[in-house]
Every structure is written in structure tokens, then in C-alpha cells.
Design a protein around this nucleic acid. Structure first.
Length: 206
DNA sequence: CCCCGAAACGTTGAGCCTCA
DNA sequence: TGAGGCTCAACGTTTCGGGG
């Protein structure tokens, strides 16, 4: 990772360190480098892997661990809990690992309060950013989200058709996550809502 | 006692709207 | 005019629990 792109002023969950977050992001980039064909085949599945690998890395590199005992179906949140916290953990001891290629938006099936770490990543098959690293984590958001930060998003899914079930969306994610980027690569900027090289060409001619 | 639907988990793509 | 906000459709996996 790029040490100077970490912001040590961002509030983190108790016991979580910048070093642990950095190791986890590095683990994601290295572990998934050979699996980018999955991304081009089914991007949503690949993002699921990114989130899962992030949780796995934090489990081994931080005081946050995956729960060892399977809870009842409605209580599977969170991905990680602070070591030694009661069961079920309080929101302050809960840490959910999410991944996305989107710049800001965040969706979940629940509106649970707790700490969230979001691995914002891109797939760079030409390895323009880092030789040997086709998967790049370009920003890491860490925030404590209240239940009131989420809004319900209905669905028309039924036996008559439709795909997804009900979800919750983070309200005004760009505003809500302002100041929550513990890591942000300075060589990546948002243009057209997508991450692009900061030193890339300006807007292409019409 | 097995099977299968419901419900939990993980997301992206696309379109339209608002507002500075 | 573009960035951000909002909404909804589509997709894939795993676990639970009740009915046949």
C-alpha cells in the first residue's frame, strides 16, 4: 500500500489500527490478483469475494474476529466483532466488511447500527497503477453508521417476477462518508462518478 | 428423514432526478 | 453540465426449518 495515502486522523473502531487496515487491503490485492477473470464474468460475485477477504484479513491481523458460532438467521450481523465482546456484540463492537466498485453508494439487506469498513476497489487489467497488481483498493471508508443513516428500499420481487429482495441504502453516502476515508490514493480521482488516474487525460473531445 | 422454499448473505447495472 | 442522490431490476450462494 502507499503509506502516505493513509489518514491517521480518521476515527477507527476501538482497537483497530491503520497498520491492520493496511495489511488487510494488501491481502485483498494480492489474494485476488489471479482471480480477475471472475470479475469480468460476474462482477457482483467478485465484490463479494473482496468483502469476504477483507473480513478474513482483519480476523487475522486485528483484534476483530469472525464469529465462531453460527447465530440464528436474523443475527448474523456483523461480519466481525471485537475480541472479547459479549454475544451478541454491541454496535460499537461490531464491524461489517463491505466492498464496492462504486464511488459512494452502499446497500445492505439490513439497517443495523455498527462500524462499517468499505473497500472501494477497481480492477486494472493493464496494471497501470501497480505492475503485478490488477486489483487496486483506492479508498477505504470506515464509519460508524446509525440505523437512521439507512433508508428502506422496496422491491417488486414476487412470484410474478423481479430479482432482488428488499434492501437498505445509505442516505447521502458521499456526504455521510466525508472525512471517513482512512485511505485514499492520491493518484486516483473521481470523474464521471468513476475512479480514474489523477494524471490521466482531461475530458476527451466530443 | 429428506427435500425445497424462504430468508439470510454478498453485490452491480441502469436510468432518472436534483441542484450548484 | 456534471456530481451526487435515489430507486429498482437482476444475479449468485448458504442456511434454516417445516411439510410431505
Amino acid at each position: 500500500m502507499r503509506p502516505h495515502d493513509f489518514d491517521r486522523g480518521v476515527a477507527l473502531p476501538a482497537g483497530l489500527t491503520v497498520a491492520a487496515v493496511s495489511k488487510a487491503a494488501d491481502y485483498i490485492e494480492r489474494s485476488l490478483a489471479d482471480l480477475t477473470d471472475i470479475y469480468f464474468d460476474q462482477a457482483n460475485l467478485f465484490s463479494g469475494l473482496v468483502g469476504g477477504f477483507g473480513a478474513r484479513a482483519l480476523d487475522s491481523h486485528s483484534v476483530y474476529e469472525k464469529h465462531r458460532h453460527r447465530d440464528t438467521a436474523a443475527q448474523r450481523f456483523p461480519d466481525l466483532r471485537r475480541r472479547g465482546s459479549p454475544d451478541p456484540p454491541a454496535p460499537r463492537d461490531s464491524l461489517e466488511s463491505k466492498a464496492s466498485i462504486r464511488a459512494w453508494q452502499l446497500q445492505a439487506h439490513y439497517d443495523h447500527a455498527g462500524w462499517y469498513v468499505v473497500w472501494r476497489y477497481l480492477v486494472d487489467p493493464t496494471e497501470t497503477y501497480e505492475p503485478g497488481r490488477p486489483v487496486i483498493v483506492w479508498r477505504i471508508d470506515i464509519a460508524f453508521l446509525e440505523q437512521s443513516d439507512w433508508k428502506y428500499e422496496g422491491s417488486g420481487a414476487s412470484s410474478a417476477g423481479g430479482g432482488r429482495t428488499e434492501t437498505f441504502g445509505l442516505i447521502k453516502p458521499a456526504a455521510r462518508l466525508k472525512g471517513c476515508a482512512v485511505y485514499a490514493r492520491s493518484d486516483v480521482v473521481l470523474r464521471g462518478g468513476k475512479p480514474v488516474p489523477a494524471n490521466g487525460d482531461r475530458r476527451p473531445p466530443p
